[in-house]
Design a protein around this nucleic acid. Structure first.
Lengths: 152, 152
DNA sequence: TTGCGTGCAAAGGTTTTGCATGGCA
DNA sequence: TGCCATGCAAAACCTTTGCACGCAA
């Protein structure tokens, strides 16, 4: 099989701990670097990126492109990701306020089946993000359209 | 309303012409810069990016993050985008070979209705890309997994 | 002791910005 | 003529890579 990481270093443990403490957040490399530097010895950016890549390959993290511009972000997948039990889990990202909504819905599970059966394409829900406008923003569309809510 | 671009310059015309000649392709800034430099006087990167941003705001182009890494890309929206008649049009992007499939399917149109009705979220199909594995790659998964097909 | 993981710095690529010049209206 | 758009260069960003050192096993 693939090569697992062999050494157990403090840096790896701290990075993984941060994801475990924020299991539902999408975390950019920049946030990780900043958060860890405030909470102990700073960790070099190169190490962070290398660990993120390795943790992703080991199935502990998932990489997203939820950001419309530039930066990638990662989320803790943990045992779920290993067991592969999260296949009907999609994300909705509001392009207005930036909120990220986790959606677990049988309708979407059917969708992946339909696309696979009729279009021969195996969707990876955990890598797929829907963009659009959330209910809160569509209600208050005349108010302050750039409310900048946090991604959860 | 918003400010439309006022001047008609050669650069803008050439950029728009390139998108009109490739109405179904997703085009990166780098490709645009290279293509236009081979076909007449080169256009500065800054101008390209500024025009892309303006054309997107005017509704003539759509911006995507179809690439998993780094670069954004744009597609000609044209009159369709203005009239807003392309709402059931999704994209499937194969993470294996990189091919981009355009999918127009009533199933997906129903999906957007369901998510809007039951989850209060208005999906923007033209900004949403599904990631997964295409039929060709899932068949030849034991062969050469990194075939690098072109995005169309 | 072995060699993987880290840190630092430098490089790489994409996108943005400042400023003087050019060109459309 | 007025002012927007362009071009060039430099900067800003995110991410990767090279290399020597430190640390886990």
């Amino acid at each position: 099989m693939e090569r697992q990481s062999t050494y157990r270093t403090k840096q790896k443990a701290r990075i993984l701990a941060y994801f475990e403490e924020n299991p539902h957040r999408h975390i950019t490399a920049a946030e990780l670097i900043q958060a860890l530097s405030q909470n102990g010895t700073p960790i070099g950016a190169a190490t962070v990126y290398r660990q993120l890549e390795r943790l992703e390959q080991n199935g502990l993290l998932r990489r997203y492109t939820a950001d419309e511009r530039g930066s990638a972000c990662w989320q803790y997948g943990g045992e779920e990701a290993k067991a592969g039990t999260c296949h009907s889990h999609f994300h909705l990202k509001c392009t207005e306020c930036g909120i990220l909504i986790h959606l677990d819905c049988t309708h979407l599970a059917e969708l992946t089946g339909h696309v696979r059966t009729d279009h021969g394409f195996a969707i990876a829900p955990e890598r797929t993000t829907f963009y659009g406008i959330c209910s809160q923003c569509s209600q208050s569309d005349t108010d302050s359209p750039k409310a900048e809510r946090n991604s959860i």
